[in-house]
Amino acid sequence: MFVAIVPAYNEGRTIERVVKELLSCVDSVIVVDDGSTDATAQKAKQAGAVVLSHKINRGQGAALETGHEYARKIGADYVLHFDADLQFDIQDIVPAFHALQESKADILVGSRYLDNRSNIPFTKRYILSPISRVVDFLFGGLKLTDAHNGFRILSKRALRSIVITHEGMAHATEIPRLVKKNKLTYIEFPVKVTYHEYGQNLFGGINVVKDLILGFFLHK
């Protein structure tokens, strides 16, 4: 069973379309409504998704792990991480899934830097991404071209081993760290990212570093 996990916070404008499109590529769509104040949950349900509702907003990492727990419970074989804001291209899912199956790797990580289809903002491509690559390597330990890409496909083995503890955006660095720690194999795959808004800025990046450092001192 191939399951898509979509963390969503106030994505009522796009969630219906995302769920419907995803259902053409995967067996089931789990939308984790992360304390939205709009109609995200209702619209996702109407579109055919299984909706898990966080009563209060806990962050993208927390929402993904809630989806993971549910996916483990229903015995999912593969899990797709997909954003709710239409920044990813549905057309990438099937080729990525085939690439993962053919490679026999445990996890596929999307990258917007492996081809030229994404309209990446200049400052993001040439300033923030190089810095984030260094930070990701230092904290994550894997040399990825785009660790902070939300498009991933996890095999059953990866789903079992990757338990996300970072609630916010630091989960994107934690996942490669867990891949390395659990000796999982990985591949990168080019995906298209369409920017509807700038996304994570420098302050977001600083917050990620702060969360990663604090994470070392927290009870797991």
Binding site: S53, H54, A62
Partner: peptide, 17 residues
């Protein structure tokens, strides 16, 4: 914060089962 997340998660999963 982590403990709050655990409670929120348990609650959302229990609602589903």
């Amino acid at each position: 914060n982590k403990n709050i997340t655990k409670i929120v998660r348990r609650d959302s999963l229990q609602e589903k089962s």
